[in-house]
């Protein structure tokens, strides 16, 4: 039997260090006895993951059924108008956004986001191609906006891959919102071939910027942070 020189507790014969303070056990008598079975097995059994993939496949099949019915009805009964395209496109975007991530065997968030970006663009394209009286806006407005939104989400995903403080999280979200706001303004202005900044962009941009600067200062200044946590303690 060994005792921890630091804690004073008796330890199991198999213990190579104290479980409470990690002080190594140096007892020549115990070591001479050879391998002693530890009080707990080393085998770790992790539980199986949820059956999300299976459920996602079932839901996909359920989603497929009304689409098949719509396409058949459209082709057989109302041949003068291709309305089932909208139903299929809407189902497809729902599938890509909400079910596809669960069907992937190896989950990769950036690939999933890229697929979502392409799917969203394709969904908009369906309406652009079949329904839009004006041409050209898809490539100059919809696609750049789509890319900007998904790039912002990807940047936030990268930032939140590690655990962040509430303050840092707020700064990141506000920075992403401000950048997105500027890009949206640029893209819209390029499309409209004008230099005027809209009120919405200005109000949103300035509000985000002020809050962003305030949180950055609060993050850097310990005294301000302490004052705020004292004042807004709940």
């Amino acid at each position: 039997m060994s005792y921890c020189v630091n804690c004073g507790v008796e330890l199991a014969d198999s213990a190579r260090k104290c479980p409470l303070c990690d002080t190594p056990v140096l007892n020549p008598n115990i070591l001479a006895e050879g391998n002693v079975e530890p009080p707990f097995p080393s085998h770790i059994e992790l539980p199986k993951g949820a059956r999300t993939r299976y459920t996602a496949v079932i839901l996909s099949l359920v989603l497929l059924l009304p689409n098949i019915v719509c396409v058949i009805t459209n082709l057989l009964l109302t041949t003068h108008q291709l309305w089932s395209v909208y139903v299929v496109a809407t189902s497809a975007i729902v599938w890509f956004l909400f079910l596809f991530p669960f069907i992937m065997k190896k989950k990769h968030k950036y690939w999933t986001l890229a697929v979502d970006a392409v799917a969203t663009a394709a969904y908009i394209f369906v309406f652009y191609y079949y329904d839009s009286p004006t041409k050209g806006w898809f490539w100059t407005l919809a696609v750049p906006l789509d890319v900007a939104v998904f790039l912002s989400i990807a940047a936030l995903c990268a930032f939140f891959s590690e655990k962040r403080t509430i303050l840092h999280s707020l700064i990141a979200i506000l920075a992403a919102l401000t950048t997105l706001d500027i890009f949206v303004c640029l893209i819209v202005n390029l499309y409209r071939k004008s230099l005027w900044v809209t009120y919405v962009t200005l109000i949103l941009g300035i509000s985000c910027l002020i809050l962003l600067l305030f949180f950055i200062v609060a993050d850097k200044n310990y005294r301000l942070r302490a004052y705020l946590s004292r004042k807004f303690f709940f």
Partner: peptide, 20 residues
């Protein structure tokens, strides 16, 4: 917790699943 008990004169034997 256990150090406090030791200081009070209560002998404690420890077993743990840590680092086995």
């Amino acid at each position: 917790f256990f150090r406090f008990l030791i200081r009070q004169g209560i002998p404690v034997r420890i077993e743990s699943n840590k680092d086995v």
